[in-house]
Design a binder for these strands. Structure first.
Length: 574
RNA sequence: GCCUCUGUAGCUCAGUGGACAGAGCACCGGUCUUCUAAACCGUUGGUCGCAGGUUCGAGUCCUGCCAGGGGCGCCA
């Protein structure tokens, strides 16, 4: 299905051009013609404010609007154009066109409003990317939900999409994880050993140790920490994948940071940056002030390898290779993103927490230093998310501790157990990424009966109920005449036709939350109609009933499509 | 101090430079003999943080200020 506002935009531009050619409008460079759906009923289905041309054309907006309408060619879709003060051109879809859309929607099915803006293009979404040192926390969950919804929307826009997970199983944290499990294992065997305070205290390692004892007895006593690290890691990854699968999220590829070391990619990238004149050796960065220089002296650092990121607008240069010869995290990160671009993705979306802002910026500078265009790399920064609970004693909200312990309501598993996969997905998605999110667990549970989640799903359930009942009664819509549809049903079709633009906007601006709000709006149009436009009711004439049954099939397609775009289930009954 | 996000109804939040600023929750009052009332109908609720500026037009763009979150490491 075409994006109708794009069709109208093109036609309006042609009309302006035609008016200019015939001398009715003076020559000027035609600016962007923004056509959008007006907020208010009575202002049409699509609208263009011609006021913006007043200065260019040196005419009154009303005159301009009338001139444009007078020069319009016939559109692909039947509609009526009306001019409204102070200079709007409003487009009203013809009823016959809307009736045609009912069957078009049913035919489109799960591919409803699959766009062609990404046709032949490849997109990648990198998200979650938590290192395998513990369970998926509430913070990771937001990234997971937003990233997967973004991937689904890109697919809807026609892109071939890959979901990738980037991780590091090498660093000091993983050593600590291995040693933590080793100590827990020894404790299970009755040894009197203590876990240092900065080790992983989570209960899940106690369970892992118990499993090791059950499986291997005491035969692992004396094994190195690496053996335990491997055991912990594979257990953690299994857990992470299982948790993500519980909210219907699956990655296509897992990219290990270590491979960038093994392939030598980080060094070739560093050489390339050096070749472009952006790398230097020094004890402190070139623009260091006295405080920084004193600090370096006090640590008696040997020279390190610096990236002159200030050339690209950074506030200070960044270390790529430490004085001990080990790369910082940033170098492999730059190498990883250059690898992404070399793999030929037209778009590489990166879903990160807001705390990675500076890091992402340095990576972008690094890509520039390689002589590559960083533009395909787009980052969605999610602001902080935390689980909160109401504290009766203090009378305020308190953050649930980030303990990584089961039962503390701060892991994905806990959230799903308490509220359900669909509720987690909806509440995590239905917020602008720029907005901080306090996930009030008690509230989500308490309100579950009057939740937007169920409000939307119930629209689909109600359709499914009609189909079930119709089948039982042997009633079908085979020869339905859609002329029997009323204003209200057509109003729903009008609203549903906005879905294409919502998908387009969500993709172009990397704002997957738009789909969640639209789903709620569409449900709000649906429910009153369901109440009034009954199908299997003795007072409803057969012709109207058939038309309505056909209509509800289209509505079900729309809701199913929306729910799937959000990664939510479309249940047949509640 | 610098960078960045946020500030819109009692609460949680939407809001492509356009028309009279919108939802949900909460509150109050009504609706089920027909496809599930997890719904519908109605009422109440606003100095869009403050002050300037740009514009025919600003919740939206710019500047300054106030308040809150996040980031400013030879950690990852």
């Amino acid at each position: 299905m075409k994006l109708l506002n794009k069709v109208l935009e093109a036609a309006l531009e042609d009309a302006i051009q035609a008016a200019q050619d015939s001398g009715k409008l003076p020559p000027f460079v035609i600016p962007r013609i923004p056509v959008s759906a007006p907020k208010r009923a009575g202002q049409g289905d699509l609208s263009y404010p011609a006021m913006g041309l007043a200065k260019l054309a040196r005419k009154s907006p009303l005159d301009i609007a009338n001139l444009i309408v007078g020069n319009m060619r016939e559109l692909d879709f039947p509609c009526e154009l009306k001019v409204a003060p102070p200079g709007f051109i409003n487009c009203f879809f013809a009823d016959e066109f809307l009736r045609l859309q009912v069957d078009a929607m049913i035919e489109a099915g799960d591919a409803l409003f699959r766009l062609d803006i990404g046709r032949g293009k490849r997109a990648q979404v990198e998200f979650v990317s938590a290192n395998p040192s513990g369970p998926i926390t509430i913070g990771h969950t937001r990234g997971a939900v937003v990233g997967d919804a973004m991937a689904r929307l890109l697919e809807a826009a026609g892109y071939e999409v890959q979901r990738e997970y980037y991780y590091n199983n090498a660093g000091a944290q993983m050593v600590k994880l291995g040693r933590s499990l080793m100590l827990r294992y020894q404790q299970q065997l009755g040894d009197d050993v203590q876990l240092p305070a900065d080790y992983y205290q989570g209960e899940y390692l106690v369970a892992a140790a118990a499993d090791l004892v059950a499986e291997h007895g005491d035969t692992l006593r004396g094994e190195s920490w690496e053996r335990f690290k491997d055991a912990a890691e594979s257990r953690m990854f299994d857990w992470i994948k299982r948790s993500l699968a519980s909210i219907d999220i699956k990655h296509d590829a897992f990219y290990n940071e270590t491979s960038l070391f093994e392939s030598g990619k980080i060094w070739s990238v560093l050489d390339a940056m050096r070749g472009n004149g952006h790398i230097y050796q020094a004890a402190h960065w070139e623009g260091a002030d006295e405080t920084e220089i004193d600090d370096v002296r006090s640590k008696s650092y040997q020279p390190a390898t610096w990236f002159r990121s200030t050339s690209f607008g950074d506030e200070k240069d960044r270390v790529m290779v430490k004085s001990d010869g080990a790369p910082t995290y940033t170098l492999p990160d730059i190498a990883y993103h250059s690898d992404k671009l070399e793999r030929g993705f037209d778009i590489a979306v990166n879903v990160l927490g807001a705390d990675h802002f500076s890091q992402a910026q340095v990576v972008s500078y690094g890509i520039e230093a390689l002589g590559m265009n960083p533009e395909p790399i787009q980052v969605i920064f999610n602001q902080m998310v935390r689980a909160v609970r109401w504290n009766e004693e203090t009378g305020e909200y308190e953050a649930v501790k980030q303990s990584k312990r089961a039962g503390e309501f701060d892991t994905l598993d806990d959230l799903v157990a308490m509220t359900g996969a669909d509720a987690v997905r909806y509440h995590m998605l239905a917020r602008s990424p720029n907005s901080q999110l306090d996930f009030d667990v008690d509230q989500v549970v308490k309100q579950s009966n009057e939740n937007p989640v169920y409000y939307i799903q119930n629209a689909y359930v109600r359709c499914a109920g009609i189909f079930r009942e119709a089948e039982e009664r042997g009633f079908d819509d085979a020869d339905a005449d859609l002329n029997h549809l009323g204003e209200e049903e057509l109003k729903f079709i009008r609203k549903a036709l906005e879905l294409g633009n919502v998908i387009e906007q969500a993709v172009v601006h990397y704002e997957p939350h738009k789909i969640a709000f639209f789903a709620h709006e569409l449900a709000a149009v649906f429910h009153p109609i369901y109440d009034r436009a009954r199908v299997l009711h003795s007072e409803v004439p057969v012709d109207a009933a058939k038309a309505r049954l056909r209509f509800y099939r289209a509505a079900a397609v729309a809701f199913r499509r929306l729910l799937r775009l959000m990664g939510m289930s479309a249940p047949e009954r509640m």
